[in-house]
Design a protein around this nucleic acid. Structure first.
Length: 747
DNA sequence: GTCTGCTCCCTGTAGACAGCATGTC
DNA sequence: CTACAGGGAGCAGAC
């Protein structure tokens, strides 16, 4: 099927021709025949790299040509940026919406194609972004993630909400191979397109001793080294290819990369350059090891790395200088980094409660699918390593010829469901108790399970919980959210988290009991936030325990939570995480924190990021519910955001001053904006440079007037929050109380 | 002295979305 | 409370 004959917009066709694409791949043609361009819903289940993206693009460009608007939903922020790059500059205006990269919401709506993570879409729905109503085409990338334990329920609800809202939405689901594609397709009222056609041949096989078994085809390789993974990689690299090794732990990833590096011992100017770049970014042992490995042509990849480190590794691999990457599953589902040979070394992975368990077939496929770079490799090879000859057959059956798992709905997760119900009520999707099951009837869960008995019970519990928490109220048959509930929904924290936060603060305030308010302690508050289900906490190692216990007893007075015997693990995980953040706001160095907790710099970033988010939510919640703690909460938020001790707070308010410059000024006895003038321009300039000095001294001079006023937030900020969009179903809900009442407070 | 190879024993276990308002070295 | 492999310690042998 010729691309030019499909009546597609000029720009798309020409950009394809430029990349040498003039004819559709067979599965793509199949999609067109099934009505892709006539607005039919499709569920497309075809291998990676067989042109899913182009299918989506064709449909989206059609919509844009007809003045439609498209939403492309992805599971990862990194994937959002990747797609953004890919879609940009082909005609339609493209925008991206993720937590950390965001053009203003209303500006977003001016785009023709919007790329967003599923959580961001959910958040936009909760905040009633008006343009969501004009979406005509929804593309769900990696739709099988509806099965994901922690995030699947959100995705399912997002799809359901969007369909409910825009009745004639065209839905295109892109999915890896799954066991029950028909079930998913019928939920979406979609035609199914399946195929295992690939642009590059994929050989899947097992390696044993010195031989690769690809079904009938057998290939013996040289085995100079003791380890199978090294032999496989060296063989591939000597053949001019690149190799990707999947392992099951970070330590293994690093260890493997080290061995590969000393086996390869490459010495090339490009590698030297990358290594120097990494050396500059390295402040930790991990960073130095990475730089040393890259110098010789190997690298590792896992979530403990900083973003810039990952990017350098990815770039080095794409340009071909880095030959081998050993990786944890980060790279399996993440971005597109194909290699000629993929070695799945560890097909067992630690699973809580079960010990080592085999990875799901679907995950094996995702990893195997990375093999073979289109146009660059003659074929791709995915290799499992067998311990012995008997094991080899087992691996064939267990992974290569095994059918992919079915996907199931994860909507019966109580925690997620409670938050989702709150958001349904808060945004007006659901107005009465009867409408709730009606709405849920449209979900994949009910589609699959038919019966609503089980989920009905969860829903009942959830409604009761929300009512008791004062997040929703009942007026006759009407359900509506209180201002507290509305805020919780919009902050995108789970109701449980909100209750833990407000509960802890209220308890300290002594409101409930009439007792005298207790003092606020950052450490105690951080500890509480770490016990929240929205915060993910660090693992505990055996060697951590004595440090943790000592810390616990030394700081008992400041902590807000006791660690009980039956939830030791959780308790100490929360404590460890709180300790990390506490170190961070004591200005401990990256290096020190990493070695103290046995983590990578990326983990610090993630932890701080999560804490930042919860602190922001906390400051909003405290303004509304427990205003007497508003100031200390906000103060903690600022300290975590910048990673500074309390003494730097006055300086940090100046624009252009971050943690480093503030510290430098402070150590030179300039402790507050007022001190700047006393010190004089020349001294300030000597510390932070002329340009910054000029900038901040001007600000300091203007202090106390308009600037200072702006900083105190208006007391009723949470009420005056712009409610500029009309609620989903049109008219305002008459039953919503116009003024909030202190939920749960003394009546 | 240093590198390598071997065995034994102990240790520890992947990943990552969301708010918000602008400015780090 | 699960299973397994990596890697350190300790030692011997080769250069």
């Amino acid at each position: 099927m010729k691309l030019e004959e499909l009546g597609l917009p000029e720009k798309l066709v020409s950009s394809c021709l430029k990349r040498g694409i003039s004819e559709l791949y067979p599965p793509q043609a199949d999609c067109v025949e099934k009505g892709l361009l006539e607005g039919k819903n499709l569920l497309i289940s075809i291998p990676t790299a067989s042109g899913k993206t182009l299918v989506a693009e064709m449909a989206m460009h059609r919509h844009v040509a007809n003045r439609g608007k498209c939403l492309y939903v992805v599971p990862l922020k990194a994937l959002a940026s990747e797609k953004f790059e890919e879609f940009s500059g082909k005609g339609p205006k493209t925008g991206i919406a993720t937590g950390d990269y965001d053009k203003k919401d209303e500006y977003l709506g001016r785009n023709d194609i919007i790329i967003a993570t599923s959580e961001k879409v959910d958040s936009l729905l909760r905040n009633n972004a008006a343009w969501m109503g004009s979406i005509t085409c929804l593309v769900v990338d990696e739709a099988h993630l509806i099965d994901s334990e922690d995030r699947g329920a959100t995705l399912e609800m997002v799809i359901t909400k969007l369909r409910h809202r825009n009745k004639d939405l065209q839905i295109i689901g892109l999915t890896a191979t799954i066991g029950n594609p028909r079930a998913l397709a019928s939920w979406l009222d979609a035609d199914l397109v399946t195929s295992d056609w690939r642009p590059v041949e994929l050989k899947e096989g097992v390696f044993c001793r010195d031989t690769l078994y690809f079904g009938e085809e057998i290939k013996t390789i040289e085995t100079p080294k003791k380890n199978d993974d090294e032999n496989l990689c060296i063989d591939c690299v000597n053949d001019g290819g690149q190799c990707l090794v999947f392992v099951n732990s970070r330590r293994n990833a690093e260890g493997c990369a080290k061995r590969m590096a000393s086996a390869l011992k490459l010495d090339e100017p490009e590698l030297e350059k990358l290594s120097v770049e990494l050396e500059k970014a390295a402040e930790t042992d991990m960073g130095r090891i990475l730089a040393a490995c890259v110098k010789k042509g190997a690298a590792f990849h896992h979530a403990g790395m900083k973003r810039d480190q990952r990017e350098i590794v990815e770039r080095g691999f794409r340009q071909g200088s880095i030959r081998v990457i050993s990786s944890t599953p980060t790279l399996a589902a993440g971005l597109n980094l194909p290699a000629r040979r993929v070695v799945i070394r560890d097909y067992l992975r630690f699973k809580g409660g079960e010990g080592m368990a085999p990875i799901p077939v679907r995950e094996y496929r995702q990893m195997a699918g990375r093999a073979g770079r289109p146009h660059l490799d003659p074929y791709g090879e995915a290799v499992l390593i067998a311990k012995g000859p008997e094991a080899a057959n087992g691996l064939y059956e267990e992974f290569i010829s095994a059918p992919a798992e079915d996907v199931t709905s994860r909507l019966d997760d109580e925690r997620v469901l409670t938050g989702q119900i709150l958001s349904l009520i808060s945004t007006g999707f659901v107005k009465t108790e009867e409408e709730l099951p009606e709405f849920l009837n449209e979900t994949f869960y009910v589609h699959m399970n038919k019966s609503t008995a089980y989920i009905g019970r969860i829903v009942e519990d959830a409604v009761a919980l929300l009512e008791e928490a004062g997040m929703i109220t009942r007026t006759g048959e009407y359900l509506s959210s209180t201002d507290y509930g509305h805020l919780v929904s919009r902050l995108y924290i789970t109701p449980q988290t909100a209750e833990i936060i407000t509960g802890a603060l209220r308890e300290r305030s002594g409101r409930e009991t009439g007792a005298a308010p207790k003092e606020f302690s950052e450490l105690g508050f951080l500890q509480v936030l770490c016990t929240t289900p929205d915060m993910y906490t660090l693992y505990i190692k055996k060697s951590d325990m004595d440090v943790l216990e000592r810390f616990y007893f030394e700081n008992e007075a400041e902590l807000w939570r006791e660690i009980s015997f039956d939830s030791m693990e959780e308790g100490f995980r929360a404590l460890k995480t709180a300790m990390l953040v506490n170190d961070w706001i004591s200005e401990a160095g990256e290096d020190l924190i990493c070695s103290r907790y046995g983590i990578g710099p990326g983990d610090i970033y993630n932890t701080v990021e999560g804490m930042n988010w919860l602190l922001h939510a906390s400051s909003r919640l405290s303004s509304m519910m427990i205003p007497e703690f508003g100031d200390p909460v906000r103060e903690t938020a600022i300290r975590v955001q910048h990673g500074i001790k309390r003494e730097l707070l006055p300086l940090i308010r100046l624009k252009g001053i971050g943690r480093v410059r503030a510290r430098r000024l402070f150590n030179n006895n300039i402790m507050a904006p007022e001190d700047l003038e006393k010190a004089g321009f020349d001294r300030v300039a000597a510390i932070v440079g002329k340009k910054i000095a000029q900038q901040i001294m001007k600000q300091a001079a203007g202090e106390g007037s308009a600037d200072a006023k702006r900083r105190t937030r208006p007391e009723n900020e949470y009420i005056s929050d712009k409610e500029d969009e009309v609620p989903v179903n049109g008219r305002d809900d008459p039953s919503r109380p116009s003024l909030f009442s202190f939920g749960g407070g003394p009546e």
